[in-house]
Design a binder for these strands. Structure first.
Lengths: 353, 353
DNA sequence: TACGTTGTCGATAACGTTGTCAATCGTCGG
DNA sequence: CCGACGATTGACAACGTTATCGACAACGTA
């Protein structure tokens, strides 16, 4: 009991393996064995050690452990997203965390804001802490700097878009397929004048999506009417303007596909303004909270973010287990969820609805 | 040039301070000095060292550094939220990250899902990695286990709700004030039959919010009519049912306050179903994407999450700089944003609008 | 009984870094 | 020219852990 007092009263420094060994009356290596679940420790001694661990509230110092281990593992991984505050990134992070925690790993997270320098800074900080692997939503036009990390056998997996000037495992959504399907969906409801509002083409996913639009329009309709296409939309405000503009064309488009979340918001806003919410069909890429409470409810193409995160983490831990040379690219399907706004028929649609 | 080849070709292990020292032709301690910006290094030597660092792409090993330093600092902090995938948590995390990164710190994040054991597990893992401090959105009824960490001088700050059975710095929203103001707002538009839908009372914020409702109703109206109050609503489905139920009372309430996000969603859904969206006023706690696109647009009470995060990080880093004994509690104001749904007048309001 | 085999255990070195400290260098006043 | 004093430098120990390795015990076999 007196020892309890001493340990409880000890004021500052965390107990070490040495303290545990002393209290249990064994050598430090034996304590290490117990902590790491190594075999060949007599049960009786093991029990004594575990009791000491409990009593001192001992926790292994991962830092010290990792510098000494042969594999240098820290049991933590780094995740770089564009902006953790957005729903895609936060759900991705959540999934990755759960996956990692199940394997006793922790996740360091950082937001690059799409700025290449910030991405590099984050990666550098992660590597200073010797993360075991990196999950990156890449920004900028050059990820070749990651080669250095990979040479130190830190595996890298890209998420949402491929890295540039470097080959690595990658997990993507089937962006083009999604928009293709949206076009298809709209044509089935009689539309042919289908407009498209998209982000800057330099954004990989935006390029993929509009490519899907173009391909589908070529295939299913007469082709792309450039009057109905607007790109370079960075936010909902510019999307609002672009939507007003596109809907003012003559003849006006009868349907609208929006390349992302904020564009959808801006476009819906514009349709309200023009009073055409119930006449013009809309399909948005990415789901929105409350999308089903709008009138009409919003038809959307949703990404399977949970699967993306899980597959990416999968690839990372697989590489952690046994490093290989080949690079895999995984495409995760997207889903069109009809809720009303995408099923509005053409005004001149004789089939009705 | 030959050295370049050797270093570039070197296959696996990260370069150490020793490698840098060898390449620059100096002692390791001098390299350490340069890395840590310590004074008393001749500029010429410093330049040579920095060049070697550059050439080898050297990065200090934070783990090794932290076990040796006197303060044991790892320049990383731990953040436990309930669910990183929800907007509150993800914005909080984002803000905290930025704040930390500006000070060269990284953030380990974990989601407790409101499960006390998971919270403890996360904290334990964080502490194994010797984080310098902890930011916690506490779950469960007992955070006294954190005393042990604090004795090792790991500062703790609670966010969104206070920890139980332990005193520590805390940053909260003025939940009660927010709901109070909502009631006030509704009464100004002629309402007196104001219903309230809330989460389980065991949730701290939910209790605070309904307390604000009760206080305001006592003060401004005749008092609380229990037929108009429903609590224990865990999700939008149960909120949907509760809203249908409350709106079926006779006389029916003319206004509705929803205690959180998902309750608002459920309630709005129910109002659609009953066709009373334009007749019954609604105010929701917490903002929603697209809230301004609903018809009528949703009046909400929003928390200033960015400020909460910044203040919490502030407190943490302040404690890190110089540990003190006093515990502070910071209350961050909330704001009512009128958008339409909260300004619907009472049917029998003679003032009109 | 002698011997080999397997299981158990701890002393010690080592990981990459920083703290300590003594040695050396340079400068300045006398 | 000498001595003093501060700036500069690096050898070495130490941090908390794991890897290596030799010592010893327990057991079975010849």
């Amino acid at each position: 009991m007196t020892t309890e007092d001493r340990s409880a009263g000890g004021q500052s420094r965390a107990p070490t393996i040495k303290d545990v060994a002393a209290l249990a009356g064994v050598g430090v290596k034996t304590v290490s064995r117990v902590i790491n679940n190594e075999p060949n420790v007599r049960p009786e001694k093991q029990a004594r050690i575990l009791e000491a661990v409990e009593r001192l509230n001992y926790r292994r110092n991962t830092s010290a452990s990792s510098i000494r281990r042969l594999d240098q593992r820290t049991a933590s991984i780094g995740l770089v997203v564009e902006d953790l505050a957005n729903p895609f990134a936060s759900l991705l992070a959540r999934v990755v965390q759960d996956y990692a925690l199940e394997r006793q790993h922790l996740v360091l997270v950082g937001s690059s804001d799409g700025v290449a320098d910030r991405e590099r800074e984050l990666v550098a900080e992660f590597c200073a802490r010797r993360v075991d692997g990196l999950l990156i939503v890449p920004s900028g036009t050059d990820q070749s700097y990651l080669e250095a990390e990979r040479r130190r056998s830190v595996p890298v997996v890209f998420v949402d878009r491929p890295g540039r000037r470097i080959k690595a495992d990658t997990v993507l959504s089937e962006n083009d397929r999604g928009v293709r399907e949206a076009v298809h969906h709209l044509t089935r409801h009689g539309h042919s004048r289908i407009a498209y509002l998209g982000d800057r083409q330099s954004v990989y996913t935006a390029a993929q999506r509009i490519a899907g639009y173009r391909a589908a329009m070529e295939e299913l309709v007469a082709g792309v009417d450039t009057r109905y296409v607007r790109t370079g939309l960075r936010d909902s405000t510019s999307a609002y303007q672009a939507a007003l503009d596109v809907l003012a064309q003559a003849p006006a488009p009868t349907a609208l596909i929006c390349g992302n979340n904020s564009i959808t918001a801006g476009a819906v806003h514009a349709m309200h303004k023009l009073g055409v919410r119930n006449r013009v069909a809309v399909i948005g890429f990415d789901d929105l909270e409350l999308a089903d409470l709008l009138q009409p409810a919003l038809t959307v193409i949703v990404q399977d973010i949970a699967t993306i995160g899980r597959r990416a983490a999968d690839l990372l831990f697989e590489q952690l287990k046994d490093p290989t040379d080949g690079y895999r690219r995984i495409a995760v399907p997207v889903t069109l969820i009809p809720r009303g706004s995408g099923e509005i028929p053409t005004p001149d649609d004789k089939t009705g609805r």
